[in-house]
Design a binder for these strands. Structure first.
Lengths: 223, 223
DNA sequence: GTGTAATTTGACCAAATGGTCAAGATGCAA
DNA sequence: TTGCATCTTGACCATTTGGTCAAATTACAC
């Protein structure tokens, strides 16, 4: 679990949480994700998070020492799952299949956890006050490593010349766009990723465009 | 100028503004863009906007009747310039050149007005409370019109089959990403679009990938 | 210069909100 | 049942903040 440099322990008996604690912390984190992703850090209120979690504000503050502590915990909770797909990019695989799989995972994420995407986007747009060290550390290392993988594919003549980092950015941009701007997309098309047809159509469009863009052909998909 | 359905007039003598009015409203809108784009609507404070505009909070509220009024005015002020590039897509032009020009304009925007991009992103991510009618109205019509243009190119065999709306989304996503996530990009690469080399590199990457993606070749660029 | 309208501000208010605290309720091991 | 630790809450507080208002200052037409 990536550390966000927490200070207070927030955990009476360190290590094992009681059933009540486990349940309540989980309820709080769910409610917090919903609230923070919709309103941003400033716009969110502890009172509303507590209400959505089904408890009093005082009780929530018994579990998390401050609004910022809830926010940090929510971010940490998400970050892992959010960055996981990139880690699966396999140097031993075929570029077309690997990239297609990565794109699909990212779209899947946008469809399944749009709130996580929005929370992350919000945090970064505010200047990444909490996660900047992670971006500059773990994430930077991860991107370097996977860029190397892509560069090797290029050097092996398996795909067209392209800046690997820029390619990763473009995959992030296109896939996350559908979560972060889902309201706009719904306003313009009447649909969003929760519609299976639109999901499929989006996956095909992005995958085709990006793979063609780097001189590859989309692999046959066996759902 | 796109209307945001303003209620109060905010303009004593309708039509012509005094020199003082013009100057102060402009100062306020600049400060507001800076503040709102960095902190979002909730996180922004009228006091800080006033300070950045070099006047008292009371005086600012003499020009705009409420925080929301400033916000709406700021959005309206941006929206026009923000959506302008798409309007220039010329049905009579060559697809490769037209799309390349559009992409370049969008990146230029992201480089020149990253704050505008972030303000817009913020507004949409919060559910577009102010601009939803515009998205569903003017913007939707504009996108339909330009999708038609792209579809005609496809039908004429000038470019590969692709959903025109999805193509537009992908251009938005990739170009705006560099403004909205500039902190992340700086954390990962050490650079952003304000660096001419990185700008050029980004423009080339995006243009090449998208044009290749739709079966076109990037036109020679004559800067 | 005079007078009126426009501009500017500090003092002030009410609501919202993050957080504290002491007291009470509940869970649970013995 | 008893006793203690955990859990829960309402009352309360300090600060922030959007907005009002009357008074003061300034711009400008005559």
């Amino acid at each position: 679990m990536m550390s966000l440099g927490g200070q207070a322990s927030d955990t009476p008996k360190n290590g094992g949480l009681s059933r009540i604690q486990e349940r309540n912390r989980s309820l709080i984190l769910d409610a917090a994700l919903s609230e923070f992703s919709r309103k941003g850090f400033s716009g969110a209120t502890v009172e509303r998070i507590a209400a959505e979690a089904g408890m009093s504000k005082s009780n929530l503050l018994y579990y998390f020492s401050s609004k910022e502590a809830i926010y940090k915990a929510t971010l940490a909770h998400i970050l892992e799952v959010w960055l996981a797909p990139l880690k699966t990019l396999d140097p031993g695989g075929e570029p077309a299949r690997e990239l297609a799989a990565y794109i699909r995972q990212k779209i899947e994420m946008s469809a399944t956890f749009p709130e996580a995407s929005r929370l992350f986007a919000n945090e970064v747009m505010q200047g990444a006050p909490q996660i900047l060290p992670i971006l500059e550390g773990d994430l930077r290392r991860l991107v370097s490593e996977k860029s190397r993988v892509i560069q090797d594919w290029i050097d092996a003549g398996k795909m067209r010349q392209v800046d690997p980092v820029q390619l990763i950015f473009m995959i992030w941009a296109t896939t996350q766009h559908y979560a972060d701007f889902s309201i706009q997309i719904r306003a313009l098309t009447g649909k969003d990723l929760s519609d299976p047809v639109f999901f499929k159509e989006t996956e095909t469009s992005i995958t085709t465009l990006i793979l063609n863009g780097v001189g590859l052909t989309a692999p046959g998909n066996d759902d």
